[in-house]
Simulated assay, not measured.
Amino acid sequence: MSTDIRTVEDDDFFGWLPLFEGYCRFYGHELDDAKALIVWNWIRDEHHPLDALIAVDPEGTPIGLAHFRPAPDTLTATTGLYLDDLWVAPDHREGGVGRGLIEAVHARAGQLGGGVSWITADDNEQAQRLYDSLARRTSWVTYEMDA
């Protein structure tokens, strides 16, 4: 099956929404209308750093998403991209959609002169098989402080 990967457009909201909802649910977060609209408005706001790509099937139905933002790297004095969210509809996995989305984000990072970095849950083994085939696993430990 042929998949097209492109920048999210204004009229993609109702195709993007179920994908983002699936992503949120997978990571144990409930998505309400307010949060969905905030994130969508970030994506569509040219002054906000969050950007998005979607993968669409031959009929134009969105089947995957990638949210990313610029990430300056002080150690290399370059700017790459941080991949915040990657989600492929379950019935379209193992077909190269996730790989295509990551490669598209990587191509954009190359235009900035940097690479791509991201994290995933330690028990997300299906995703890690893909990530291990594309990128170097690091030894960095992630910390978080709640608001």
Rank of each mutant, 00 (worst) to 15 (best):
N41A: 07
Y23V: 03
Y143E: 06
G22P: 02
A104F: 00
F20L: 10
A55D: 00
W140H: 14
S117H: 13
A127S: 13
A127P: 08
T61N: 12
A66D: 05
S2Y: 05
G96W: 04
A121K: 12
V8T: 13
D123P: 01
E59Q: 13
N41L: 02
A89T: 01
A66N: 08
N41R: 13
E46K: 13
V56G: 07
L19F: 07
A52H: 00
L31V: 04
A36P: 08
A52W: 00
Y27Q: 03
D51W: 00
G15D: 01
F26D: 02
V8L: 15
R6Q: 10
G60H: 10
D45E: 09
T142A: 15
R44P: 01
W118Y: 10
F26L: 14
T79E: 04
G98D: 06
K35Y: 05
A135I: 05
I54R: 05
K35H: 12
D33T: 15
V116L: 11
I5D: 00
G60R: 09
N124L: 05
G115W: 04
D45I: 09
G15N: 04
T142C: 14
L83T: 00
T7Y: 04
D57Y: 03
F13M: 10
I63L: 14
R25V: 09
R25E: 13
L17E: 12
W40Q: 03
S133F: 02
F13V: 09
A107F: 03
R108H: 07
G96L: 08
V39L: 14
I43K: 07
E9M: 09
H92I: 00
A107G: 10
W42G: 02
V56T: 15
D122T: 10
D146F: 09
A55R: 01
R136W: 08
D123I: 03
L17A: 15
E125G: 11
R137D: 01
G96N: 13
D122K: 09
G22K: 04
H47K: 13
A147W: 03
Y82M: 04
D57W: 00
T138F: 06
E144Y: 14
P62S: 07
D32A: 07
E46V: 13
Y82D: 05
A147F: 10
I63R: 07
D12E: 05
E30M: 07
W16S: 06
D84M: 07
A135E: 02
D32W: 10
G64R: 02
A135K: 06
H29S: 14
H47A: 14
G114V: 07
A121E: 06
E21D: 13
V39T: 15
M1V: 12
W140D: 11
R136N: 15
G100P: 04
D91H: 15
D73E: 15
H67D: 00
P70N: 12
Y82K: 04
R25L: 12
W42D: 10
F20H: 10
D146Q: 12
I5A: 00
H48C: 11
D33Y: 10
K35F: 07
L130A: 08
D84C: 08
V39C: 08
A55H: 01
D146Y: 06
D123H: 13
A55V: 00
G95S: 14
T61K: 15
P18Q: 03
D45N: 15
P49F: 02
I38H: 15
A77T: 12
A52D: 01
D123M: 01
P62I: 00
D84R: 09
A55P: 02
Q126C: 01
R44F: 02
R137G: 06
Y23R: 03
S117T: 14
